[in-house]
Design a protein around this nucleic acid. Structure first.
Length: 828
RNA sequence: GCGGAUGUGGUGGAAUUGGUAGACACGCUAGUCUUAGGAACUAGUGCCGCAAGGCGUGAAGGUUCAAGUCCUUUCAUCCGCACCA
């Protein structure tokens, strides 16, 4: 007899990868008549560093589910693509002059190699690359659609500016007031430069996105994060008349969620950027102090402001505000704890009820008034807590004696009647700033004409192609390096034909990733961004996985999908039916993998160590539920290899003895029961993304098979079914070894398409069952009874147990409870 | 501060959703075997105890025949947002 074939991943894995490629095993027919299943993980930015175990987990999660669906007979489409515009390639280009196109292509090639070796069932005939012109042409088309509906607009916005680089900086690039690259003692502070930038009006969709959030089948905390991000709060706007410094004709609107505290107002605070500060502070006696304070505050980045715990501010001497409810005159201050970007950039300060105002009043010795009978902090913010709802108003004129909730409504109504305010809803979410003064992004398809303004590039003139440059440094005038491509820059205005210039800003990378779920459906279509009929068939995405971007990307994609749904191009308003947010895999010491620590692990290293991709995939799935953070433990990997090897051995041994069938079938019932139980468990666990218990169920089944083999040998006809079932069940996790064994078992097609074992529930039922017998809540015996035994028989069987007698100590039981199929509980 | 989770053996984690806590693995202990492999297989392994038995899901109460699961209080850890008026 020949020696048994051994399980050698490094031989079988490349073999089957080539086979799948050649046979187009994972190529989806997008026009298939079959029921469709569409799912994937957030696509990657192809960096020079390659993928690590975190990416391995990210893509393995959907791969397993998509494989299950393909095996169950669905047209299962696992797309693949690259989010390839971005900073690393551009920074590299600035340093070396190497075109980002070249480095990006190289990185993608290397990613492709890694993806294939992981055994992911992606359809490479439909790969997309967001930095290729056949993709970003349609990103530009999306921009034009939004522009046409008035959802893309320009606005002046302050940007951090480094004088040395002659370049804009993001918030994170400002460190202690200086540019991250120029933070020496002699380097200048960063300044703010006002630039005209493009925005998408996502705030128009804030309400409907918020309202739809609760019903999503998404990881719960992601939904909460999105709701917080949108930050809707309902409150009241109150109008305060100004007085002094020549501002008597001006008024300030303040937003508050606690209007019932308005009688406690003792001062008003304006944000340093508030326009009225610039206009009237110059007339104040302390104009210079105010000026200095404002300049100082505006120089701090938001991040720096956040770090400062102590509140600071200055009064605008001589400027007062009139409280609309009682005519009280209060001083006006400027302080940077009030943010220009929220509400109206001005607050009515109520130090008697608000901690922040209280702290400020203490520091600057401002008066404090309490507006409830309790004389303490009562409530602030959108909700009045139940235990405080009964507090009673005081010092509040005609509203004294009312409870807080009533007063809230009544004061708002009073203001509305007096024309001095109204109920209002505000949002934390701002419009989406999409302009980037960068080269490696999708050019904004706009032509700036002196006469016509910002004119959209006509659709038939798309794409606006990125020109190749010799030098990728910023242009130095606040515009992107594109401003240096003169041939590209100068064009005729599409409207009047006069000389004009292209917009040199490119789009935020999040724009590219806001619509790729549709492009995957028409990756090669050069007549439209996607085919709406395909979208009708395939959208929404059934399963979407990621471990990042809980707010930004996932909100932007929802915004785009809603927009195109309204235009009739997408069948549903939501892009992702089930969004699964997985937890990170940690380093062995429980810390995060990080570049600076250099503790990242390349999956290829694990694969090539001899354990193979199948063991890696299985181990990643087994280590913990995918949404639970868990450390990588290299000791655990051999256990997955061992498990696969045990299946391997069962099949190989079976093949050797196949011809020696005999009639002994004493374990068939047990064999079939174990197999069908496993089919049921694995199917439902994969669908519920509980891969760890799916694998443990298969391990249990394999353990049963070994036990039966020891007692019976391979003599029964049920073995073929059991082995084929296990091979099919393990295929989503370990596709290569499953394919090999499937062929060993005599099949000549792929196990991965249309082969999932069928559950026969009749095999799940056994003749007998084991019940626990409890006396006073403690297990005292076990009884084996017929599955169809009646309740009385079971109870008397339980009471007849010797140990039960002992614990009843001769007394009659007070009560005997039978829990069907579980236990008998006896109360003494 | 606000919001959201999560606390189970030496370790990762199971638990039919109120019904035999610790499945499946890692590790450890003992053994079998030899085609010495990254072996494989068998048995054991929550804690205390020689045993009978008792104890046991962060802690303390409660509901129940029965609580890891439900309720109240409390502690700890992690995550998100964070001067959002």
């Amino acid at each position: 007899m020949l020696p048994m074939k051994r399980y050698s991943p490094k031989d079988i894995e490349p073999k089957w990868q080539a086979y799948w490629d050649e046979n187009g095993t994972y190529v989806a027919d997008l026009d298939s008549e079959k029921e469709k299943y569409y799912g994937f993980a957030m696509f990657n930015y192809p960096s020079g560093a390659g993928i690590h175990l975190g990416h391995a987990k990210n893509f393995t999660i959907p791969d397993i589910l998509m494989r299950l669906k393909r095996q169950q007979g669905y047209e299962s489409y696992s797309p693949v693509g690259f989010d390839s515009f971005g900073l690393p390639a551009e920074n590299y280009a600035i340093k070396t002059g190497q075109s980002p196109r070249v480095t990006t292509d190289e990185a993608i090639e290397s990613y492709r190699n890694q993806y294939r070796q992981m055994g992911w069932s992606m359809d490479w005939t439909k790969v997309i690359d967001s930095s290729k012109v056949d993709y970003y042409k349609w990103t530009q088309w999306c921009f034009l659609q939004l522009h046409e509906e008035g959802l893309a607009y320009q606005k002046e916005s302050l940007q951090w500016w480094c004088e040395i680089d002659k370049s804009v900086l993001s918030d994170e690039q400002v460190i202690a007031g200086k540019c991250w690259r120029h933070d020496g003692a002699d380097d200048p502070l960063v300044t703010k430069k006002s630039l005209r930038q493009w925005f998408f009006k996502i705030t128009d969709y804030a309400d409907e996105i918020l309202e739809a959030t609760d019903d999503l089948n998404w990881t719960p905390w992601v939904k909460i994060a999105q709701k917080n991000w949108i930050g809707r709060s309902e409150g009241t706007v109150a109008t305060f008349q100004l007085e002094g410094l020549g501002a008597d004709t001006e008024h300030v609107d303040v937003f508050t969620t606690a209007i019932e505290t308005i009688f406690g107002v003792t001062f008003m605070v304006l944000a340093p950027e508030h326009p009225l500060v610039a206009t009237y502070a110059q007339h104040a006696d302390n104009a210079q102090d105010v000026d200095e304070y404002v300049l100082h505050a505006m120089r701090k980045s938001d991040i720096d402001r956040e770090k400062e715990k102590v509140k600071t501010g200055v009064p605008v001497e001589g400027l007062f505000a009139i409280n609309p409810v009682n005519g009280e005159k209060v001083p006006v201050w400027v302080a940077d704890y009030v943010l220009m970007g929220y509400g109206s950039g001005a607050i009515m300060a109520v130090p008697g009820q608000d901690e922040r105002d209280y702290e400020f009043a203490q520091k600057y010795d401002l008066p404090i008034i309490y507006t409830t009978t309790k004389n303490e902090f009562v409530s602030y913010g959108p909700e009045i807590k139940p235990d405080r709802a009964k507090f009673t108003m005081a010092n509040s004129g005609e509203f004294d004696g009312q409870n807080l909730e009533e007063a809230r409504q009544n004061i708002t109504k009073w203001l509305e009647d007096a024309g001095k305010g109204e109920a209002k809803t505000t949002y934390k979410m701002r419009d989406w700033l999409i302009s980037r003064q960068r080269y490696w992004g999708a050019p904004i398809p706009i032509i700036n004409c002196a006469d016509c303004g910002a004119v959209p590039v006509p659709e038939d003139q798309l794409p606006v192609q990125l020109p190749e440059l010799d030098d990728y440094h910023p242009s130095g005038d606040g515009r992107s390096p594109l401003a240096k491509a003169k041939d590209w820059l100068h064009v005729e205005c599409p409207r009047c034909g006069k000389p004009a210039e292209r917009e040199t800003d490119t789009m935020d990378g999040y724009v590219c990733s806001s619509w790729y779920q549709m492009r995957y459906l028409s990756p090669h279509d050069d007549t439209q961004a996607w085919d709406p009929k395909r979208a009708e068939e395939w959208m929404p995405v059934k399963f979407y996985n990621g471990g990042d971007h809980a707010t930004a990307h996932l909100l932007y994609a929802r915004f785009f999908t809603r927009f195109f749904h309204k235009k009739g191009l997408v069948p549903t308003p939501e892009p992702f039916e089930h969004m699964y947010f997985h937890a990170k895999i940690l380093a062995e010491d429980g810390t995060f993998f990080s570049k600076s620590k250099g503790n990242g692990i390349d999956p290829l290293e694990v694969i090539n160590s001899g354990y193979g991709a199948d063991a890696l995939r299985t181990y990643l799935s087994f280590i913990a539920p995918p949404d639970v953070e868990s450390p990588w433990n290299s000791d655990g990997l051999p256990s997955s290899y061992r498990f696969l090897n045990r299946i391997w051995t069962l099949v190989q041994e079976f093949m050797e003895v196949e011809s020696q069938t005999s009639s002994v079938e004493s374990h068939d019932k047990e064999l079939l029961q174990a197999t069908h139980k496993t089919i049921q468990k694995v199917t439902s666990d994969i669908e519920a993304i509980k891969y760890n218990t799916a694998i443990s169920a298969m391990m249990e089944c394999v353990n049963v098979l070994y036990k039966i083999k020891d007692e019976d040998g391979y003599q029964s006809s049920a073995w073929q079914f059991a082995l084929e079932s296990i091979v099919q069940l393990v295929a989503p996790f370990a596709p290569h070894v499953a394919e090999e064994l499937w062929h060993d078992l005599g099949h000549d097609d792929s196990v991965h398409v249309g082969h999932w074992p069928e559950l026969d529930e009749s095999h799940l039922i056994s003749d007998t069952m084991t019940l626990a017998v409890q006396v006073n809540g403690k297990v005292r015996a076990e009884i084996e009874v017929a599955a169809d035994a009646d309740e009385e028989a079971i109870k008397s069987e339980a009471l007849a147990q010797e140990n039960v007698h002992a614990h009843l100590s001769g007394k009659q039981p007070k009560k005997v409870i039978y829990v069907k199929n579980r236990l008998v509980s006896i109360v003494a």
